[in-house]
Design a protein around this nucleic acid. Structure first.
Lengths: 107, 107
DNA sequence: CGGCTAATTAGCTAACACGCTAGATAATCG
DNA sequence: CGATTATCTAGCGTGTTAGCTAATTAGCCG
């Protein structure tokens, strides 16, 4: 349930980036990393449990896909933080502009 | 240098959210958490080293602020992933629409 | 300089995360 | 059903991290 924790690991971010390009089965994913299969499998589990990915069974294969909603929520958090920060700067800028204007008016 | 790792810890995310509302000194930040001061200090260090926050010295206080650029980069990564995913779905939708249209044309 | 306040670093413990190998599970195919 | 393929879970070793308390550094003020 914690997307940011799931994305903290670089291998998991690579998996996410791979799945952004399209679905893949577990073996295909594992084959693209220099680490052992079970290690990748554990990463897939973390991503699954945090809701970042999901899979469907196809014969003996698990075909994984991205589940964009969870990532969207994480992005919304960032948007809120960045928007609030930007809003503060905008207010500061307006404030400074006004100070400058008054200074010019006065003399 | 790893923003996602820095954001993996919930305490650190709270610190970030706090700083989105405005600057604060270290003691003020620490006072809002139920954990000991040094523990917060260590979190601040992680956030500093990942470029998420910065501070200026003011008398004996360190006044911390958000450094939005690093967060922006993280968000850009998410945007890229989500955009790629959405684009795939859009193409799929167009494909299905076309199949449907041809079917109707053929009767 | 000596005392004061603010914040950090040092050093410890307990918990967790990532890697590995070996064994278990699940679904398919002859 | 037995063999095969694909994937996961179990269990272990090691390194890292989060928390704590105690000691240290950094900057100010009389």
């Amino acid at each position: 349930m914690d997307v940011f924790e799931a994305l903290a690991d670089p291998t998991r971010r690579e998996i996410v980036a791979m799945l952004a390009a399209g679905e893949r089965n577990a073996g295909d994913i594992a084959g693209r990393f220099p680490i052992a299969g079970p290690s990748v499998s554990r990463h897939l589990k973390v991503l699954r449990e945090s809701g970042v990915i999901a899979y469907r069974q196809e014969a003996t294969s698990r075909i994984y896909r991205l589940e964009p909603q969870s990532l969207s929520e994480a992005r919304q958090w960032m948007d809120a933080v960045l928007d609030a920060t930007k809003a503060r700067f905008d207010r500061l800028g307006a404030h400074l502009d006004e100070m400058k204007r008054r200074e010019e008016d006065d003399g």
